[in-house]
């Protein structure tokens, strides 16, 4: 992600209108994609991208590097998402308890866990599982959802996520682990229940 933002930053600094337009498209892509993952609604993602980029124009300053620009973009986009008018799409704020998330399988039940034999590619290529993944992300309480999206989908590092969220690295790691386990558990039901159809790469 940072290489995309890096290139966009160089183009913005060049002042060349064609390059600026390309940079704008890149940044629109980054922010819109983030907005879609967080809000799950096209209109909210569009509003998020529009508001964030207008703020970028208003507050255009010399970002020292792509990292600073990326953190700023995600920070503003995150705030926009949280303020989006379709707030009802957000699950109510709640804490995820690690104890409650921990599977209870042991002994005889243990082999059931082994039946998880789906690959990441199969999850992404299988329409139903992909949609379950998306729904599970949207079902996460917002502070866990944001951390998971920033870290695992946008692939920021722990420090960057902590900075965007305004929390410590320890809290970031704690929320990330719970969010991952929540997703894993949400998918597990489908992975176990469904006979995984073999998917072709072009499906």
């Amino acid at each position: 992600m940072n290489s995309q933002v890096e290139q966009a930053l160089a183009s913005l600094k060049s002042g060349n209108p064609e390059d600026v337009e390309l940079a704008l498209e890149t940044l629109q892509g980054v922010v819109y994609s983030f907005g879609m993952k967080v809000c799950g609604v096209r209109e909210d993602a569009e509003d998020t991208a529009q508001e964030t980029l207008i703020r970028l124009a208003r507050q255009l300053k010399d970002f020292p590097d792509a990292r600073a620009l990326a953190v700023w973009l995600y920070k503003v986009a995150k705030t926009q998402c949280l303020m989006s008018r379709r707030k009802s799409k957000f699950a109510p704020a709640q804490m995820l308890s690690l104890d409650a998330l921990m599977p209870k399988e042991s002994g005889a039940a243990a082999p059931a866990v082994k039946s998880w034999e789906v690959t990441p590619e199969e999850i992404l290529l299988n329409k139903e599982l992909r949609s379950k993944l998306k729904d599970a992300v949207l079902a996460l309480p917002k502070h866990y959802r944001l951390v998971l999206i920033l870290r695992d989908m946008e692939q920021l590092d722990t420090r960057e996520v902590a900075e965007v969220m305004g929390i410590s690295e320890e809290t970031t790691k704690m929320r990330l682990h719970r969010a991952r386990v929540f997703l894993r558990n949400a998918l597990a039901g489908y992975v176990r229940r469904a006979e995984m159809p073999k998917v072709r790469a072009h499906d």
Partner: peptide, 9 residues
């Protein structure tokens, strides 16, 4: 597997 699926999403 879950984390890798998120990375590819």
């Amino acid at each position: 597997t879950t984390v890798e699926a998120c990375r590819g999403y």
